[in-house]
Amino acid sequence: MIKILTAIWRQSIQEFLIYRTTSIITFILALAFLVIELITGTIYFSENRSIPGWTENEYFILITFVNCSMYMYNTFFILGHEELNEDILEGNLDYVLIRPVSSYWLSAGRKIDFPSIFNFLITFILLLNFLNKENVTLIQVIVICFLILVTAFFIFVLNQIFLSFLFWFNGVSELGGIIEDLFSFASRPKKIFPRIIQNIFVFLFPVLLATNISNQFLKKGINSYFFYYLVLIAVFYIISRILWKFGLNRYTSSN
């Protein structure tokens, strides 16, 4: 396993150096979108505008938290998921399946996206700055870091479920990036959405719960919603493993 991880990192570094211009552009664009989101938040709260129950700093915590989670997912899984999309459709999963490790994990974690590492570090520093303005404790910071990992894992699981449908439906590939788009859509205080949208994306498909979890924790501490979020992630993870297992039974190699 260690040899495989070492090979993954070595290959990712080599690709980063080969395509460093593209990587730098990717890094700059991602940073630009983050800046735009922060500027948008400043506009939301300018000239006596406000979101009831939210301060400008709390909004910035939400934005940076979601972006940290997304960059964490991108670092370890985005490139693997992009290749997995093609490998399932073209029957090129053999390389993954013959390895003496879990195909579920190797199929998605076979490459590292280095630009996302830099984006994560910058965004995480901003998040710590905004948290510091709320006078949070060290324990709260640790819990927020845990929630970043959990939410990044949740994004991974949702994408894994989505891609597993390719074993049955080829047309799903046309909806690539839908999970990231959903998280971008949900990167707002949940109370600004109509009640029916809140119920769907908090209790059934908890994207709004995922994006707002850090602020909920800072305001209410560890409560029932906190454990509900963890339980839902566990359920979605089990579903993703089941779909992957049955999907492999339908897989046909091009070789």
Rank of each mutant, 00 (worst) to 15 (best):
S173E: 12
S173D: 12
S173V: 13
L175E: 00
G177C: 13
E180F: 12
E180A: 08
E180Q: 14
L182Y: 08
S184P: 00
F185M: 06
A186V: 12
A186F: 10
A186D: 03
S187T: 14
S187G: 11
R188P: 02
P189A: 08
P189G: 09
P189Q: 05
P189Y: 09
K191N: 12
K191Q: 11
K191A: 09
F193Y: 14
P194W: 13
P194F: 07
P194E: 11
P194I: 11
R195S: 14
R195L: 15
R195M: 15
I196E: 13
I196C: 05
I197F: 14
I197D: 09
Q198C: 09
N199D: 12
N199K: 14
I200Q: 00
V202D: 13
V202W: 06
V202Q: 13
F203R: 03
F203P: 07
L204N: 02
F205L: 11
P206S: 01
P206C: 00
P206N: 02
V207E: 00
V207C: 00
V207P: 06
L208I: 01
L209I: 00
T211I: 03
T211Y: 01
N212P: 12
N212Y: 03
N212C: 10
I213D: 13
I213G: 06
S214D: 12
S214E: 10
S214H: 09
N215F: 06
N215Q: 09
Q216H: 15
Q216M: 12
F217V: 11
F217S: 03
F217W: 14
L218C: 11
K220W: 04
G221A: 06
G221C: 11
G221F: 06
G221M: 12
I222T: 05
N223M: 05
S224A: 13
S224G: 10
F226N: 09
F226E: 02
F226K: 11
F226A: 04
F227G: 11
F227A: 07
F227H: 08
Y228T: 15
Y229R: 03
Y229D: 11
Y229W: 08
L230P: 00
L230E: 03
L230K: 01
V231Y: 04
V231C: 02
V231R: 01
L232D: 05
L232G: 05
L232N: 12
I233M: 06
I233H: 04
I233W: 00
A234H: 08
A234M: 10
V235F: 05
V235I: 15
V235G: 07
F236L: 05
F236H: 03
F236P: 08
F236D: 01
Y237Q: 01
I239Y: 00
I239P: 00
I239C: 02
S240E: 09
S240V: 10
R241F: 09
I242T: 04
